[in-house]
Amino acid sequence: MNDFREKGGPRRVGQVKEITSLANPVIKDIKLLAQKRHRDESGSFLAEGLKLVIDALDLGWTIRTLVYSKAGKGKPLVEKTAARTVAAGGLVLEVSDKVMSSMTRRDNPQMVAGVFEQRWSPLGNVRPQKTETWVALDRVRDPGNLGTIIRTADASGASGVILVGECTDPFSMETVRATMGSVFALPLVRTSAEDFLRWKKGSGAKIVATHLAGAVDYRTIDYREKPVVLLMGNEQSGLPEELAREADALARIPQAGRADSLNLAVATGVMLFEARRHILSLDGKN
């Protein structure tokens, strides 16, 4: 497993290493995080932006490497974040703008990025409580959709996101960008359809699935009687029959106009905030 130590020597904790060469082996390792295979092998991912890095540290995520461009040198928040990284045993790199652009694959990159350890929650540890809402996504394929859903789930007060089957990687750069930092705020779970259905039977949760054949208007469902898991299908094919038939309610979102379906992230947002509206009504906040 690659832990971004300097090749040929120990990590120089407490020092800032200045790098201007694209051929530096540490930079090459970080650039490889654009590939899922290397993210999986290293258990790491790259997040861009000073605020995202600070939020992740505040939430207890493990940082392996902090990278900042020369534009960040001397800025108090950057220096404070660098000190926190060193205190946590991480490596701090000051790089040229050219190097930062190559790592982030952007022409105008953020001045700070961080390499963090991935974090997954076991499905068996998920025990939804009353008034909680979780999102379960079956084979979501688009990184932008997944990132937007994670961000929306965070904004709506949802408790976490469950990825069912072969989903796109929530720790890809595209998805992390789309979450706007919410990837650090919510538990992420990955599981198979079979294990999800076994978990469902003992979870005590109500599974509400959106489906083109759904007979129930999503606004008429009671989201308050039990914890709710909103089960959303694949962008192209929707929910497979083995998942749809196990749902406690098949919901539809009435639509006008010529469109016969909604974007997955939009549909998930509609469902999340309807569930939130019902839950808030328990406290008279609606």
Results as ranks from 00 to 15, higher is better:
T220L: 13
P25Y: 06
D107E: 07
G284I: 06
H38W: 12
L93V: 01
K130A: 09
S42H: 08
F116Y: 01
K73F: 09
Q35H: 11
P10F: 06
A178E: 04
A178P: 06
N145M: 12
G157E: 12
V229G: 07
N125K: 10
L66I: 11
E235S: 05
A267L: 10
F116V: 00
L239M: 13
L91E: 07
G204L: 05
A155T: 12
Q110E: 08
K206I: 03
D29F: 00
E94A: 03
D3W: 09
E242V: 08
A205M: 04
S156Y: 02
T131Q: 08
E18Q: 09
V126W: 00
I279N: 14
L282P: 01
N2I: 15
R258D: 14
R276C: 02
R276T: 11
G89D: 03
V266A: 15
G160N: 14
T81E: 06
R277E: 10
G181R: 05
S172G: 15
K36I: 08
G204E: 06
D248F: 06
A47F: 04
L52V: 14
E94G: 00
I221F: 11
L52G: 05
M1A: 12
A153G: 12
K201E: 15
P240N: 12
R84W: 03
V26W: 00
A71Q: 13
V189G: 07
L280D: 12
K31N: 04
T148Y: 04
V86Q: 07
A209S: 12
V208C: 10
P25C: 03
K17E: 15
